[in-house]
Amino acid sequence: MAKYRHRTFEMFDLFDEANDAIASKSTRPTADCDEPESWSFQHLIASRNAGVIHVQFKKREGLDTEIPSTLRQDFSQLSDSLVNNSRILLDFECLSEFSAPCIKELKLFNEKLQSKGSRMALCHLEPAVQASFFPDRIVTPKH
């Protein structure tokens, strides 16, 4: 299992690894929910499948400097829509870059989730995206 150590986020190479990690560590049953099967926001698409909320970014390239405020709105709306004890997989498959201001918004989203007893794991981080989470470390590409 390729898990990257980060002080704030659980990060994995593959979707299945991330899904298994948050499923196996969840000791509380998922709350019954009236959540829709999917949500669409300005930058995010979220869908519920087998008790896990799979969140993907709509854009295929990096998120520019004007994105953090609207990304904050998307994360806020999504977290307000989720019930307590939710499990969220944030999938970076479509992104080639992720800026420090966007990471700040992601941290705020994670704090809000944690206050609701929810967990989040990140997956499919390309080397450049992964490197943005570790600004003081050189991340070597996978072979």
Results as ranks from 00 to 15, higher is better:
1 M>V: 12
2 A>K: 13
3 K>L: 09
4 Y>N: 02
4 Y>M: 07
5 R>M: 09
6 H>C: 10
7 R>F: 11
8 T>I: 11
10 E>G: 09
11 M>Y: 03
11 M>K: 06
11 M>P: 01
13 D>L: 08
14 L>A: 14
14 L>D: 15
15 F>C: 07
15 F>D: 07
16 D>T: 11
16 D>Q: 11
17 E>F: 04
18 A>R: 00
20 D>W: 02
20 D>L: 09
21 A>L: 02
25 K>Q: 14
25 K>Y: 06
26 S>F: 10
28 R>E: 04
29 P>S: 09
30 T>R: 09
30 T>E: 08
31 A>H: 00
35 E>R: 04
36 P>E: 02
36 P>Q: 08
37 E>G: 08
37 E>N: 09
37 E>I: 05
39 W>A: 00
42 Q>H: 09
43 H>K: 05
45 I>D: 06
45 I>H: 10
46 A>T: 03
48 R>L: 08
49 N>R: 15
50 A>F: 07
51 G>E: 05
51 G>H: 00
53 I>C: 07
53 I>P: 03
55 V>N: 04
56 Q>C: 12
57 F>G: 01
58 K>S: 14
59 K>Q: 15
62 G>Q: 05
62 G>Y: 11
63 L>S: 06
65 T>I: 15
66 E>M: 12
66 E>D: 15
68 P>L: 12
69 S>H: 12
71 L>A: 05
71 L>D: 07
75 F>T: 00
77 Q>N: 14
78 L>P: 00
79 S>P: 02
79 S>Y: 01
82 L>R: 00
83 V>C: 13
84 N>A: 09
85 N>A: 02
85 N>S: 02
87 R>D: 00
88 I>D: 00
89 L>Y: 05
91 D>V: 02
92 F>N: 01
95 L>N: 02
95 L>W: 01
98 F>I: 06
100 A>D: 12
101 P>V: 06
103 I>N: 04
103 I>G: 05
104 K>E: 11
105 E>A: 06
110 N>C: 05
111 E>A: 05
111 E>L: 00
112 K>W: 03
114 Q>P: 04
114 Q>T: 10
115 S>R: 08
118 S>W: 02
122 L>I: 11
122 L>F: 14
122 L>Y: 04
123 C>V: 10
123 C>K: 02
126 E>N: 11
127 P>Y: 11
129 V>E: 06
130 Q>L: 15
132 S>W: 09
132 S>H: 10
133 F>S: 00
134 F>T: 09
135 P>F: 12
136 D>I: 07
136 D>C: 07
137 R>H: 13
139 V>N: 10
139 V>I: 15
141 P>I: 05
142 K>N: 07
